[in-house]
Design a protein around this nucleic acid. Structure first.
Lengths: 192, 192
DNA sequence: AATATAAGAGACCGAACGGTCTTTTTTAAG
DNA sequence: CTTAAAAAAGACCGTTCGGTCTCTTATATT
């Protein structure tokens, strides 16, 4: 990887944190300059526009997020452990070094409500992927006789994701993990 | 109510929709001028800063929201009907004429993450009030023998609000009410 | 109808925005 | 070591931002 590629990657890493913490509108080129130590010329040499930086940053966040989920679930032998690993990531989304600023998907979904139609599809895909992961955990649990075969995997997956996202927002707002704790506790009680 | 008061109220009404749909940062004075038909001088005669408009608009949204909830619940005789009325408001938050743009609380919670510390307390209070309303519905249901007396009102209220907020975001993003429908269905099944 | 005051218009301001362009410096291949 | 190309600097541009200030118009009280 030559200098140019390294710098471009570095800009994306730094920017993704900015976009996720203070949002698209508030992340100015000036902020990115400060965070990277580069000047305007250096940044616009690698990207044609702020939107292009935002897109690259969001993709990077998504990739990181997905990796984290899959890696956490892998090597777990029971559905219960998998679900625990999954929820643990949600718990850490507030303090995670890389993904600081909460769930990138939810943030993008709320802010890019009308504008940024560019990333709207990516956000949809991201959520769909998360639901799919939860669904696969539930279905795995059924084959292991951990989870009642009557539960509707898709529907329950939607409930789990929705409640986790809502609780994450509440916990971040109140700077109190109890909301996430409460929701996770009840989800477990519901499934196992 | 004299002209000045009418105009100020009108600015707040129009602005609250703007803030809730496109967010604080994206709602410029220019946008407010367009929405109200007033010029800069007319707007800043009634407010000292954009933040002051934002605060007034948010308070107005909160008040409207709370009114809607309480009014919907009143005159309902069973907890089941009350909960149904409550969830129905959530369903309509996407299409409501006044509160267009989703849940004002969630929008504010996500966007005013670091900045706008001004309204942070109001957002917290707003969420606490919603949880309290749900809690009271559940407790009413217990006295009516509709709901199992063993359920923890507070905890379940948090789960319900979290999942509704999450599902609302999903439904708005995908322009598909099914997420809210699914979650509401499961909440009902859980309680009744 | 007169008039004091409330309400609003709109030109103006400095700062910050995203983005361009020329110049300088750094990198890396021969 | 030389040199062409890649990378970065930073002055500059037009636009939009939130906000001010003066001047005009509308309101409401006597």
């Amino acid at each position: 990887m030559n200098k140019g590629e390294r710098t471009k990657k570095y800009i994306i890493e730094q920017s993704s944190t900015l976009f996720n913490t203070i949002g698209y509108k508030s992340t100015s080129i000036g902020e990115i300059m400060k965070a990277t130590g580069l000047k305007k010329g250096g940044i616009f040499y690698h990207f044609d526009s702020k939107d292009e930086i935002a897109e690259a940053s969001f993709s990077y966040s998504l990739m990181t997020l997905k990796e984290k989920y899959l890696q956490a679930i892998n090597s777990k032998e029971t559905a219960k452990e998998q679900l625990y690993a999954f929820t643990k990531i949600f718990m850490n989304l507030s303090s995670d070094d890389i993904l600081v600023g909460g769930c990138p998907l939810m943030n993008a979904a709320i802010e890019a409500d009308d504008s940024n139609i560019l990333i709207e599809d990516s956000v949809k895909e991201g959520f769909a992927a998360l639901i799919e992961i939860i669904k696969s955990i539930i279905e795995f649990g059924k084959t292991q006789n951990e989870i009642d075969k009557q539960v509707n995997s898709e529907e329950v997956a939607v409930l789990i994701l929705s409640s986790l996202e809502g609780a994450l927002a509440l916990s971040r707002l109140n700077k109190d993990k109890k909301y996430l704790d409460l929701v996770i506790k009840q989800i477990k009680a519901m499934l196992f």
